[in-house]
Write a protein that binds this DNA or RNA. Structure first.
Lengths: 143, 143
DNA sequence: TAAACTATTTATAACAATTATAATTTAAGA
DNA sequence: TCTTAAATTATAATTGTTATAAATAGTTTA
């Protein structure tokens, strides 16, 4: 139910200390419906933690990732974005404005199987994203 | 037939000058069956072009990408890798040693359609990769 | 062919995201 | 409360990539 509480329990179970900074970062990740960068988080929490270091944000995002609470989305040029893991979903990304929208799709098991069969790899997971233009940017293009 | 020749023709058609450096970078990309980083290319051509600049490699990879000859593969931490575009294919990546292997799969049109329908985006393209362990690394794990 | 123009390369500096380091502080169990 | 390992901070370093300006090399025009 309460995502934050569950997340904190996960941390406890894995023996990760719950510091105020970690609490705040998790809270921000859960509440922000966007997919913030490390810097977004840093800036957002500047008010509450005036002397928090950027390194803390990065360190803790790594911790959360290792524990499985957070997923790191890496796109070429720009900086990584971080996504609180709830249910399995994919992303569609607007190439004009950068907006990221979630969408659900049954996992691509078939592709994984074929790839495994053809290459002999032991498959762990996959990533997929779709690129295009969001409705707002499409309508802007047309004028 | 001859990929290099075709690529050079493409450059000619689009009015991109064919310099010795560009020729060499293309040749290297086509012949190397791996997916080299900009630095790999830079190092590989050091012998032939002792005072070529890294910027030249980056510049020309960008040119090739814009013309559609080359695809840039971006993964989080590490540096971009570059792939000479031949037929449409996907990649499976070994998480232990970083090896990248190509595999073919009919495009994921269905996913694109669903995503477009659900989100209202105009879809342009997608990316997908599979992660796992290559046969060599799997056998190493077992001992 | 020579002059003029433009694209390309080079060398270098700048930049931005991220990580490493070392000193200081703090959470959580005894 | 004390202790200790873990976390935070401040800062510096690193790394991949891009920007800049000067030098060079192709092209086009006269």
């Amino acid at each position: 139910m309460n995502q934050l509480k569950e997340a904190l329990d996960t941390l406890k179970e894995t023996g990760v200390r719950i510091t105020p900074q970690r609490h705040a970062i998790l809270e921000y990740l859960i509440n922000s419906m966007s997919h913030p960068t490390a810097d977004d988080i840093y800036k957002a929490l500047e008010g509450k933690f005036p002397n928090m270091s950027v390194a803390t944000v990065y360190n803790n995002l790594r911790v959360f990732r290792e524990v499985g609470l957070v997923k790191e989305l890496t796109y070429g040029d720009a900086s990584s974005r971080f996504d609180f893991v709830t249910t399995h979903h994919y992303h569609i990304i607007c190439e004009s404005c950068g907006k990221i929208v979630d969408f659900h799709y049954p996992g691509l098991d078939e592709v994984e199987h074929l790839a495994s069969h053809v290459t002999g790899f032991k498959v762990a997971n996959h990533r997929m994203e779709i690129y295009g233009s969001c409705p707002e940017c499409v309508s802007k293009e047309v004028h």
